[in-house]
C-alpha cells in the first residue's frame, strides 16, 4: 500500500519539477497506451483475444471528435465517445458470441478494418480519408491552478487519472462477480454454464467495459492531438499495441501490461524514434514475436515463482 502511494506521488511529479513539455507529452501518451493495454487485458480476462481494439479506440475518437465539434464540452464529448465505443463493442460481441480463440481474433481484426473503411468513405460524417481537424483542446479546470490543467500538463494529469481509473476498474473486476464469472468462462464455458453462469452475459459485459475504457482513451487522445483520421485511429497500430503490451506484460495480470506499456513506449519514443523514426513500430513487433516464442506468460511469469 505504501509502495502504491509512493508510485502515485512520483507519477504526479514530472510536470511540477520542470520536465520538458515533450517528455511530459511522451509520458502522457505512455499512460494512454497503458490504459489501452489494461482495457485489452480486461477482455482477455474472459479468454477473448482481440486483434481489433482499434475499432473501439477509433469509435471513441470519432464519437468524441464529432460531439466536441458540435459544440459540446470536451468532457461530455469524451464520455459520448466511450458510449459509442460500447455500442460498437456490443455489436461485434453479440455477433461473434459463438466464436472463440483465433476465429474471434480474426473477426475483431476484420471489424476494425470495416470501421476504417467506413470512416474513409462516409465523408459527410467522418470527413473521409482526410479526417477531422479543429478539435478543441481539453478545457482548463476552474478549481485548480491554471498551470496544472493547461496544455501538455493538463493532458498529463488527465491521462494519468484515466490510467489510474482503468487499473482500479481492472483490480475491482478481478475481485468481483464479473471477474469470477470470467475466470470460470475462460477455463471451461460449458462447465460454468452448469453452475448457473450465462457465458454470453459476462462476455458481453467484458466487451463493454473494455471498449468503454478504450473509447474514453480514444476520446482523450483526439483532444490531445486535436485531429482524427481513419488510418490513424482505426489503423492496425492501435490494435496491435495494446495486444503486444498486455501479452508482453502478462495476460490476466493487473500491473504487468502497464509496466510493459510504459517500458515499450518510452523505449520506442525516446531512444529509437530520434535515431530511426521509420522503425519506431519495430519494438512492438519484436516484443510480440519474442513473447510468443520465448515467454508465453509474459513478464508477469518472471515475477512469480514457477508453479505446477
Amino acid at each position: 500500500m505504501r509502495g502504491a502511494a509512493l508510485v502515485a506521488t512520483l507519477a504526479l511529479l514530472p510536470p511540477l519539477i520542470g520536465f520538458h513539455p515533450y517528455y511530459v507529452y511522451v509520458l502522457s501518451t505512455a499512460f494512454l497506451f497503458a490504459t489501452l493495454a489494461t482495457a485489452w487485458n480486461l477482455l482477455a480476462y474472459g479468454g477473448q483475444i482481440s486483434f481489433g481494439h482499434a475499432a473501439f479506440f477509433g469509435l471513441g475518437a470519432y464519437g468524441a471528435a464529432l460531439t466536441s465539434l458540435a459544440g459540446v464540452s470536451p468532457w461530455a464529448a469524451i464520455a459520448a465517445g466511450g458510449a459509442v465505443a460500447v455500442a460498437g463493442a456490443l455489436l461485434i460481441g453479440a455477433a461473434a458470441a459463438r466464436l472463440g480463440g483465433a476465429a474471434l481474433a480474426l473477426a475483431t481484426l476484420a471489424y476494425a478494418e470495416l470501421w476504417r473503411g467506413i470512416a474513409q468513405n462516409w465523408t459527410a460524417v467522418s470527413g473521409g480519408g482526410a479526417g477531422l481537424v479543429g478539435i478543441p483542446p481539453l478545457p482548463t479546470l476552474a478549481a485548480v491552478p491554471l498551470d496544472l490543467t493547461r496544455g501538455h500538463t493538463g493532458s498529463y494529469y488527465v491521462s494519468l487519472a484515466v490510467l489510474a481509473a482503468a487499473l482500479g476498474v481492472f483490480g475491482l473486476m478481478t475481485r468481483s462477480r464479473l471477474g469470477l464469472a470470467l475466470r470460470a468462462v475462460r477455463e471451461a464455458a460449458d462447465r460454468a454454464a452448469l453452475l448457473g453462469i450465462r457465458p454470453i452475459t459476462w462476455k458481453l459485459a467484458s466487451f463493454a467495459l473494455s471498449a468503454l475504457l478504450t473509447g474514453l482513451a480514444g476520446g482523450l487522445y483526439v483532444h490531445m492531438v486535436r485531429v482524427v483520421e481513419p488510418d490513424l485511429v482505426f489503423g492496425r497500430f492501435f490494435s496491435i499495441v495494446p495486444l503486444v503490451m498486455a501479452m508482453f506484460g502478462g495476460l490476466h495480470s493487473v500491473l504487468g501490461p502497464t509496466l510493459a506499456a510504459l517500458g515499450l513506449h518510452l523505449f520506442s519514443e525516446l531512444l529509437l524514434h530520434p535515431v530511426a523514426p521509420a522503425l519506431h513500430q519495430l519494438p512492438y513487433a519484436v516484443a510480440l514475436i519474442v513473447v510468443i516464442l520465448y515467454l508465453p506468460g509474459g513478464l508477469a511469469s518472471l515475477a512469480k515463482a514457477p508453479r505446477d
Binding site: R183, E187, A192, G196
Partner: peptide
C-alpha cells in the same frame, strides 16, 4: 471430475454459490 483446473478450490465452489439458485 471437471473442476476449473487453474482456479483455487475456494473459487471453484464460490462460482456456483454466487451464480446458482
Amino acid at each position: 471430475a471437471r473442476p476449473f483446473p487453474r482456479m483455487s478450490v475456494f473459487d471453484n465452489v464460490l462460482a456456483g454459490v454466487t451464480f446458482g439458485a
